[in-house]
Design a protein around this nucleic acid. Structure first.
Lengths: 211, 211
DNA sequence: TATAAATTATGCGAACTGTTACAAAATTAT
DNA sequence: ATAATTTTGTAACAGTTCGCATAATTTATA
């Protein structure tokens, strides 16, 4: 790997984007100043501009960075886990861990901060809708697979169940940021998993664990 | 009703708050300037200050105004309607009508714009959590009544079903603002009503209509 | 070693932000 | 009528915003 010609960068782009995600998560796009972003990332404003473009471009790249991390996390839970209730439980509890990572809880970076900007910034809107549709598709495929494997009633509509599962993510994000307790949300998750993926006699016979 | 002493106001507070709700709904709290608010309401900035206090106070009163309107709308649907599936359908479709009132769709004023500010402004956070809890309680009572009337299985957990119903509102709000089509959300509503309030043999015999 | 290329740092500036003083206008009470 | 009181409009304030021009620094290449 050849090094580029001029003075080398003194920062790692991924790290900076992580820090930008953290900064934007607190006050959202509009209320986060470039001064704050510079402080949070350790670079100064011209460096931010040189590397990422203007404020909107930086916000968009922070969103994309967050989504790409989310994508890999989903592959490890929703796709990899064979048992549907376990997959859903892992998904929701994993989301909760992210939403409560800071004090106070900040909820989901995309679902709690992007909708506000979606109206004024078409690119933000497209990214948000893109994530929503991607999750619908991923979860839809997961529900379809479970149904085809006989873990769900044959009349189940996988696409609509997927939307209900994503609705759970949305409400968890909003409730966490609004200040609802983590314990309350954990109880809600347990109930919701039971509604979305009722344990059938067959799966009970197979003895699916809850880890 | 005695008139107050000085020069009378040239505006109606309720109307101004409606206009403030509309203005804040577009760009959220931070990105809406007092100039925009003055233009939207027809008053000039000092009048806004005199009548409502600073920007945060105005935003809070706009939120409260919106919630109080919502409260009366809920009384007409969720509480008044005897049949649970019909009540839920009216609730969700009524929400959709509000979320799609403008072009592009703006979603819910509270659930789409307040969460961002909730972290920095404790009063906004309290109001948001207050609305969430109020809806939980209202819907919980509605599900409990339906269960006690034999319209739902005896093992139903009304409080958790209420949270799932509110999750539907949250996802409708986010999806509408992100640009998902109204037709798609109407299909989702139909499916969700069937999941939350399955039509039992008893209610089918009673012949509940869908209007 | 000299040159080109890229990043970093300092600092500036024009525009906009929320907020407040102040005087003019409009109404009620005395 | 005069005084008291409240709202309105103009204007201005101090602080912050984003973005950029410029110069200094660091590296690869010729």
């Amino acid at each position: 790997m050849r090094r580029s010609r001029g003075r080398p960068r003194q920062f790692d782009s991924e790290t900076v984007l992580d820090q930008a995600v953290a900064a934007f998560s607190v006050h959202g796009y509009s209320a986060t100043s470039l001064d704050e972003l510079a402080r949070a990332t350790g670079l100064n404003r011209p460096s931010l501009y040189n590397a990422f473009g203007d404020k909107e471009a930086l916000y968009l790249q922070a969103l994309e960075h967050f989504v790409s991390r989310l994508r890999t996390a989903l592959a490890d839970t929703v796709v990899a886990e064979a048992d549907l209730p376990t997959a859903l439980r892992k998904l929701f509890l994993g989301a909760l861990a992210v939403y409560f990572a800071e004090r106070p809880a900040l909820g989901c970076f995309v679902f709690c901060t992007a909708p506000v900007e979606a109206v004024a910034h078409p690119a933000v809107r497209a990214l948000t809708l893109g994530l929503v549709e991607e999750l619908d598709a991923l979860l839809g495929a997961r529900f379809a697979a479970a149904r085809d494997a006989g873990q769900l009633p044959a009349h189940t509509d996988p696409a609509q169940m997927a939307k209900l599962a994503q609705a759970t993510l949305h409400t968890l994000a909003i409730r966490a940021r609004a200040g609802e307790s983590r314990a309350s949300l954990e109880r809600f998750i347990e109930h919701t998993v039971a509604v979305l993926a009722p344990v059938t006699k067959a799966s009970r016979r197979r003895g699916t664990s809850r880890s």
